[in-house]
Simulated assay, not measured.
Amino acid sequence: MKNLWLEFKGFALGGNMFDLALGFIIGTAFAALVESLAGNVLMQLVAAIFGQPDFGGFVFTVNNAEIRYGSFLTELLNFLLLGLVLFGLVKLMKMAKLGNFRAQGSRECPHCKEFIAVDADKCKWCTADVHPAVVDDEEGASPAR
């Protein structure tokens, strides 16, 4: 029983599980922040422009069935504003050099058939020049070919 407890403790407090838990907690807090910015700031700007914070009152009736297209428009606008906020935050973080925004994944070298990073411009195995599949736009490189 003691060995099982020690094994569980090593698993639960090990690097991967602890990193995952911290990432989940920070991700939840970040999602609340972004949602608050989109809902409490940007949607209020929409309310200032259109006179109301949502379009839930926009409906039309077909054969005694209410079609609430205003609610759909509100959710669509929320989605677009949330995406805009996320895009802006990621761009700001990239400009401030915060976080790891390197391309993830691997691909096959066309020469030696070994796996290399998707943003590699030289194969680490055969040292052949390869075109990166993903190019970081901040390096001023031309788009991927």
Rank of each mutant, 00 (worst) to 15 (best):
N63C: 07
D54N: 15
F72I: 14
T74H: 06
C109R: 09
V85N: 06
P132E: 13
A141Y: 11
G10M: 10
L92H: 04
S71H: 12
D119W: 04
L37A: 07
Q104D: 04
R102N: 08
F18G: 03
V59C: 01
A133D: 07
K94H: 02
E114D: 07
L73V: 12
L4F: 15
L89V: 09
F30K: 01
I25G: 10
A120V: 04
F30H: 02
I67N: 09
L84N: 00
R145S: 13
K9R: 15
I67H: 07
T61D: 10
F79H: 11
G57Q: 10
H131M: 14
V59M: 01
L92A: 15
D129C: 02
L20M: 07
L77F: 12
P110H: 09
D129Y: 06
P53M: 08
V46P: 02
F87C: 14
V46M: 13
A117V: 05
E138M: 14
I25V: 11
A48N: 10
F11V: 06
G88K: 00
L4T: 09
L73K: 08
L20Y: 05
A12C: 13
A47V: 09
S71K: 13
T127C: 00
T127Y: 02
W5P: 04
V85K: 00
L80N: 05
T28I: 03
I26E: 07
L73Y: 09
M17D: 02
V118F: 02
L33P: 03
F101P: 03
P132A: 13
G14H: 02
M93C: 05
L76E: 11
H111S: 15
C112K: 03
V135W: 06
L76N: 12
A38F: 02
L81Q: 03
S142L: 14
C112W: 05
E138D: 15
C123H: 01
P53D: 04
G83D: 01
L73D: 06
C112A: 04
N3F: 12
F55G: 02
V118Y: 01
Y69A: 15
M1N: 07
F11A: 11
D119M: 06
L89S: 08
A133P: 00
F55K: 00
L22G: 12
L80C: 06
R107W: 10
G56F: 11
L20D: 01
G56E: 10
H111K: 15
E7R: 15
F55P: 03
S71F: 14
F11P: 02
V34Y: 03
G83F: 04
G70C: 07
F18Q: 07
F79S: 12
Q104M: 08
H131S: 14
G15W: 08
Q52Y: 05
L4G: 09
L20N: 01
R145M: 09
A65T: 11
F24E: 00
K124Y: 08
A48Q: 11
G23L: 00
N64Y: 00
I49N: 02
D54M: 10
C123A: 05
N64W: 00
G105M: 05
S106I: 05
Q52F: 04
E114I: 01
M17F: 11
L82K: 12
E138F: 15
F18Y: 06
N63Q: 10
V90Y: 05
G83I: 01
